[in-house]
Amino acid sequence: MVDVSQHELVPDHTVVDDEEIEDVLEEYDIKKTDLPKLQRLDPAAPDEASVGDVVRVTRDSRTTDQAVVYRLVVD
């Protein structure tokens, strides 16, 4: 089986803890469901991610070196 995370197009995906989620939601003044979504069966989703978790995606960005975005895991 091919390790998806090794591909150069796939950025880092990590599950974040509740505390960090709160910080993020507060910073953007949004609800959790307003976040972009990530399907639970997405090949790049971390194995331990379950529905309702928030995943931090650290991209190599073209405009800043690194861009951090959050996605809510959905079914």
Partner: peptide, 26 residues
């Protein structure tokens, strides 16, 4: 398998996930 790409965004999505598909779209 870490550099090979394809121009079909749906294939990228199903093999590498939505973030890779976004990157390929750009």
């Amino acid at each position: 398998a870490s550099r090979t790409t394809c121009n079909n965004i749906h294939e990228i999505k199903s093999e590498l996930g939505i973030e890779a598909a976004r990157e390929t779209l750009i």
